[in-house]
Amino acid sequence: MIQRTENIIIRTICRILIPAIQLFGLYVIAHGHGSPGGGFQGGCILAASFILMVIALGLEETKRRFTEKLNNIFSSLGVFVYAWTGWMCLLLGANFLDYSVLSAILPADPIKARYLGMFSIEVGVGITVMAVMVSLFIDLVTGGKHGEGL
């Protein structure tokens, strides 16, 4: 399940499919404001692309591209982005998560600033969800032998 597969068809399809899935994931995150979707769904789709990578290309190769450390940092980073957005609002003098004051540092009026603030947190959610889902999957599928490289 997690060994590298040598089947050329699968490998090629994955090579084509994975970037497409990732692109779609990014689209879902970015376009969550106007259509169904958002950080969580997009993050899951991104994670799915990595899960596919693990299944098709093997854990070793995946880990070379998306290392354990990077994964861990990403999972923190996402929530950090979220909390920091809120914190910025606080520093700018409004209540926590009151994005309208972000207009002071963003080129937008208060209403539009809310839009951008939401975008920033959606990105945060997406990053965390992606990283955590990947790490959860790898941990569960290898029974925690993540670090030993199987």
Partner: peptide
């Protein structure tokens, strides 16, 4: 008029009840 986001679910999720969502992310984390 308040958030300029057409998807209400996103608007409520990320703005009106954005605080919940932060904890949701923290749960995942």
């Amino acid at each position: 008029e308040e958030t300029s986001v057409p998807n209400m679910v996103t608007a409520v999720l990320a703005d009106y009840r954005g605080y919940d969502t932060m904890f949701e992310t923290a749960v995942i984390f």
